[in-house]
């Protein structure tokens, strides 16, 4: 196992407000790393710093470095960085003007790839990879937004996969889904770790315990504890972590 992402002395701001404070975190390749913590503690901001989406928000600012394969992404072209580090958002956000099929390969289409055969093949590949093919194979030309919430979210994962990233960031991907869809999504995430390095934000501790290999506990913008998931949940070292996972606050 090797380190895929190395977060070093990362600080993040919205305007004057500092929301990430000196985060240091190494993320293992082909593993699932969960980020947990109470609402507003900076989980979303942290993963958005990993693919340079944080700076897209007006007034947002980052300091420190994030190394992908030991190269600082903040010294590279953000467009290239986002190709290598895909993202799935909290609310499913398929493009409303595109069909299911077009959504799956939206990243390629939007970059100017026109070859219909190639696009259709890629779409089938990624829709199959997220286990959606049998459900939507007869609805490929319907708008992506016509699918159910769980299907939309898997379509968004397919869309991220089509760009062939190395890392997949997921921001509470199941928070808008029903329990059955959530379970399917967790199974999928578990499958995906064979090929991708996954960072998943969740405020659901059972979910973190179920799917992740490593867990980071964030509190008020600081990384309080980070270790092997089993260890963190069974033998938390920090008092705050202990109180959080036992449900005594947050």
């Amino acid at each position: 196992m090797s380190t895929k992402i190395r977060i070093k002395s990362l600080n993040g701001w919205f305007g004057e407000k500092q929301v990430l404070k000196d985060i240091n975190l190494d993320i293992e390749e082909n593993s699932i790393t969960a980020i947990i913590g109470p609402s507003g503690c900076g989980k979303t901001t942290l993963i958005r710093c990993i693919n340079r989406m944080h700076e897209v928000t007006p007034g947002a600012r980052v300091e420190g470095s994030v190394l992908l394969d030991e190269q600082d992404i903040y010294k590279e072209d953000p467009v290239k960085v986002r190709e290598r580090i895909g993202m799935v958002f909290q609310r499913p956000n398929p493009f409303p003007t595109m069909s299911v099929l077009e959504n799956a390969v939206a990243g390629l289409k939007l970059k100017g790839i026109r070859n219909r055969k190639l696009l259709a093949e890629k779409a089938e590949e990624v829709i199959k990879a997220v286990g959606l093919w049998d459900e939507v194979k007869n609805e490929l030309n319907k708008p992506g937004t016509s699918l159910s919430g769980g299907q939309q979210q898997r379509l968004c994962i397919a869309r991220a996969l089509a760009v062939e990233p190395e890392v997949l960031l997921m921001d509470e991907p199941a928070s808008a889904l029903d329990p059955v869809s959530t379970m399917r999504l967790e199974d999928l995430i578990y499958e995906l770790k064979k090929e991708y390095t996954i960072v998943i934000v969740t405020h659901n501790m059972q979910q973190a315990a179920r799917v992740s290999d490593y867990t980071a506990f964030l509190y008020m913008g600081e990384l309080i504890e980070y270790s092997n998931t089993k260890e963190l949940f069974e033998r938390p070292k920090n008092d705050l972590t202990e109180r959080y996972i036992s449900g005594r606050f947050g």
Binding site: V79, V81, G86, A106, G107, L110, R159, A160
Partner: peptide
Amino acid sequence: SIREAAIALGV
């Protein structure tokens, strides 16, 4: 969210 979806794809 639509803008961000596109940008996050590396477009």
